[in-house]
Structures are given as structure tokens and as C-alpha cells.
């Protein structure tokens, strides 16, 4: 057993600080300052803490940090700088998808995860894709419409 736990975070190799049993959300928010990740429930229900692990959306509030060893973690901080990320941001802002905004970063990460496997989702697929992200403000419709209007972006779907 080695004592150093390595993982890739937003494209950079990093070493996991502290105990591997810590919740990944705490590590990312408090040690790496990635505050796009929100804590809404701490029980895997709301999706505000969504991140990508190996390209798929996961709730970071119920994931032990050690579980990302040798894996790739991406947060909205890096996603928003990509072409598709920017389209997602615009889809949310232009169509009235943002109200209080607390659920929105997690929503954006779920949308990114969805578009990587399904670049042209229909309404049902979008609703399915964000079904783990609770929003108490918008009623979802504007978000769904915004995503449906996103043009397909060729990109790294790995």
C-alpha cells in the first residue's frame, strides 16, 4: 500500500490530502477551493454537489475521496472553460434556466455528462439526465428547453 493517493483533477495530477475516507465534496471545496460544488443535502438526493468522475456525473457528497484514486475528476471550474461548457452556460442563462442558482452548477455538470454520451438528447432524455438534480425554483422546463436548443458540439467525449 502506498500512502500517496494520486488522481487527476481538472486536467492536473494531484495528490489527495488527508484521510481517504473524507467526503470528496469536502476535499474539493475546502482543500482545492472548488466552490462551484454546492452542498444541498449531503445525502445524494439533490445533485448540487455533482462532479464528473471518469466523465460521468457523480454526487461528491457521498463519495469517499479515496474512491477517485487513479481516476479523472472534473468540476464545473474546468467544464465551463470548454466550448460545450460555454454552450451549457448560455443555454441556462438565455432561456431563464437560472433563478436562485444554487442547484445550477450541479445541473450544468449533469448536462455535460448527458451530452457526452448523447449529444442530441430529446426532451425525455434531458429530463432523465437531470432527474437527480433538484431545483426548487424553476420547475425545470426552462432548463430542459435551453438544453434542447444546444447545438451539437464535437468534442472530447471520452
Amino acid at each position: 500500500m502506498k500512502n500517496e493517493i494520486r488522481f487527476s483533477l481538472n486536467g492536473k495530477e494531484e495528490t489527495l490530502p488527508g484521510d481517504p475516507r473524507r467526503r470528496l465534496i469536502d476535499v474539493l471545496r475546502e482543500d482545492f477551493g472548488l466552490t462551484s460544488i454546492k452542498e444541498g443535502c449531503g445525502e445524494g438526493e439533490c445533485g448540487a454537489c455533482s462532479i464528473l468522475v471518469d466523465g460521468r456525473v457523480i454526487d461528491s457528497c457521498i463519495l469517499p475521496a479515496g474512491a477517485v484514486e487513479d481516476r479523472t475528476v472534473e468540476t464545473l471550474e474546468s467544464i465551463r472553460e470548454t466550448e460545450r461548457g460555454e454552450k451549457i452556460v448560455q443555454a441556462l442563462t438565455r432561456g431563464g434556466g437560472v433563478q436562485c442558482g444554487f442547484c445550477i452548477p450541479g445541473m450544468a455538470v449533469s448536462i455535460e455528462s448527458l451530452l457526452r454520451t448523447n449529444p442530441r438528447p430529446d426532451e425525455h432524455a434531458i429530463r432523465e439526465g437531470i432527474s437527480g438534480n433538484l431545483c426548487r425554483c424553476t420547475g425545470y422546463q426552462q432548463i430542459v428547453e435551453g438544453v434542447a436548443a444546444i447545438e451539437h458540439v464535437e468534442g472530447d467525449n471520452s
Binding site: R29, T35, S36, I37, K38, E39, L76, E77, R80, I88, V89, L92, T93, G97, V98, G101, F102, I104, P105, A108
Partner: peptide, 15 residues
């Protein structure tokens, strides 16, 4: 406030 929120840059109290 939408763009900043959608980019996850808005700082809520815990941030």
C-alpha cells in the same frame, strides 16, 4: 445574475 451563477462563480455563504 444568471451567467455568474451558471458558471458556478457566485459565492453563497458557505463559499
Amino acid at each position: 445574475d444568471a451567467r455568474e451563477k451558471a458558471r458556478g462563480e457566485t459565492r453563497y455563504l458557505a463559499d
